[in-house]
Design a protein around this nucleic acid. Structure first.
Length: 477
RNA sequence: GGCGGUAUCGUCUAGGGGACCAGGACGGAGCCCUCUCAAGGCUCAAACACGGGUUCGAAUCCCGUUACCGCUACCA
């Protein structure tokens, strides 16, 4: 049984890069079977916050990436980490190092000054037994260093294939600080063993940690998991994604009106390809199609434009009924409507969404376009007025005439409207657009909207006529 | 600096020796549809980093170079 885990450190919001890593872990488990676990790596007390932990949970929940079993808090496993480090010491795989940070730093500077790469010289490992005993007895502070064995360390990475590191390039790294707390690599390995993780899938910035971790597994006598190192996600400038690139937290996109399934679909395509030129997928399709074969090695650049397009695709994939709650929420938040406003007008709301979603890429786009249909009056876009109501007397005459025609239409439905209005255009010897555009401005205040008959239908006869009256008043004043 | 990783259109990618004068998608340009805006359809511009090999044949394999990224902490 596969057991994978997503292990974010709660030092900020759920980042798109983290979300993508979580997604691939989740997809793997959903496709191949197994458990998807969540571990919060909160051992950096200085940077970890409760708020961040909550934000990560919320982000994952919003995306629908549900985890199995209870969340593991790394900070709670300190005793286990320490015990594992102690075992390392007992087995002779690690040793006590009494060098102080200042001493190490001084030697490092010295080495750099002479152009050499610094590597801990293992001097404390050569301490005579009696001296070692004396220092321990005297209670001298020490860190525990792992004694890197000779040879080389390699593994068959699921995405990169075989990667090999000569051990001589790895120094005896610290596994336990002088205060007895574990260093990252120790904590990770200890936890992954305890959680019985079978596949460690994470960002490829961890590639160089991997040989150290493998050595730890081996020294601890634990079975090795497999490793899969996913490529990073960069900003448009090719640099590591940061706040400078604008929205990088998944929550930001949620608030911009992006659908979670679109976010997932977009993220999935960053570093993975199902092949066959498939792009737009539902979540079940992604699970079905997911394969480690399609994983890419190359860092990808986050393109918000394509995300928006993707969202538009998912918007049209979704039934307006399903969109309704999201739209009402957004409308409410925008102060354009109240939820109970729609309880009696559900069919009307659905019709409105039908009209708007095809010309929207986000929920927010829908909200922006909804204003003319919800408010009592419209405000006229100056450019629209300038362009479509250029000659006021003519426009007044036209709108008045249109008003009369509209008032007599029966039933109040698009086919009847279309016939009446087109007939009128013919009688006037002008193209239909000459009527529709000025009318559109009267109805919506804008030169762009859904088809004019749909707008009329949605507005209802009374409001449509009232809008025309408003326009007439405006034009005469 | 050392070590590791990566390298196909601006971007995401297909491609795993001949099917490729390199396919799809986003974005861009244009056309069609059309009451406007979208959506949709069609068309165009746009890439195998460079240099050596291997091979009858390389985007695909190997080696260098270059560029970029990551790690190089008593951070995670």
């Amino acid at each position: 049984m596969h057991r994978l885990r997503f292990a974010p450190s709660p030092t900020g919001y759920l980042h798109v890069g983290g979300a993508r890593t979580a997604l691939f872990n989740w997809l793997f488990v959903k496709h191949y079977g197994g458990q998807f676990l969540l571990r919060v790596e909160d051992t950096d007390r200085a940077r970890s916050t409760e708020a961040s932990t909550r934000a990560i949970f919320e982000g994952l929940e919003w995306l629908g990436l549900a985890w199995d079993e209870a969340v593991v808090h790394q900070g709670a496993n300190l005793a286990q980490h320490r015990a594992d480090a102690q075992r390392l010491l007992e087995r002779g795989a690690a040793y006590r190092c009494f060098c102080t940070p200042d001493e190490i730093e001084a030697r490092r500077r010295e080495a750099e000054a002479s152009g050499d790469a610094f590597k801990y010289d293992r001097r404390c490992d050569r301490l005579p037994a009696d001296e070692l005993a004396r220092r321990v007895a005297a209670g001298m502070p020490f860190v525990v260093r792992f004694r890197v064995p000779d040879g080389e360390t390699s593994w068959d990475d699921v995405v990169h294939g075989v990667i090999t590191f000569p051990n001589k390039d790895i120094e005896d790294f610290v596994v336990l600080r002088s205060d007895g707390t574990p260093i990252y690599n120790m904590a990770v390995v200890s936890d992954d063993i305890a959680m019985r993780i079978t596949l460690v899938m994470r960002g490829d910035d961890h590639i160089s940690n991997t040989p150290k971790q493998i050595m730890l597994y081996e020294a601890l006598g634990a079975a090795l998991p497999r490793f899969a190192h996913l490529p990073m996600i960069h900003g448009v400038d090719g640099k590591k994604l940061s706040k400078r690139h604008g929205a990088t937290a998944v929550g930001d996109y949620r608030h911009m009106g992006i659908l979670p399934q679109a976010m997932l679909n977009f993220l999935a395509l960053l570093g993975w390809s199902p092949g066959n030129d498939i792009e737009v997928m539902t979540v079940p399709q992604m699970i079905e199609l997911f394969s480690t074969e399609g994983l890419s090695k190359k860092a990808a650049i986050f393109d918000p434009k394509k995300l928006e397009w993707m969202n538009g695709q998912h918007l049209s994939l979704l039934a307006s009924e399903a969109l309704a709650p999201l739209v009402t929420d957004a409308l409410t938040n925008a102060g354009l409507a109240t939820a109970d406003q729609f309880t009696s007008k559900r069919a009307w709301l659905i019709a409105l969404i039908d009209l708007l979603k095809v010309r929207s890429r986000t929920i927010d786009d829908i909200v922006r376009q909804a204003a003319p249909y919800l408010s009592a009056h419209v405000s006229y876009d100056p450019e629209a007025v300038a362009k479509q109501w250029k000659d006021r007397p003519t426009t007044v005459e036209l709108l008045s005439s249109l008003r009369n025609t509209l008032a007599a239409i029966e039933p109040w439905e698009p086919p009847a409207m279309e016939e009446a209005l087109r007939t009128q255009a013919e009688q006037r010897g002008v193209g239909a657009g000459k009527l529709f555009q000025p009318l559109r401005v009267a109805l919506t205040g804008l030169t762009v909207s859904a088809g004019i008959f749909d707008v009329l239908a949605l507005l209802g006869r009374d409001r449509a006529l009232a809008r025309i009256d408003d326009a007439l008043n405006y034009l005469r004043s």
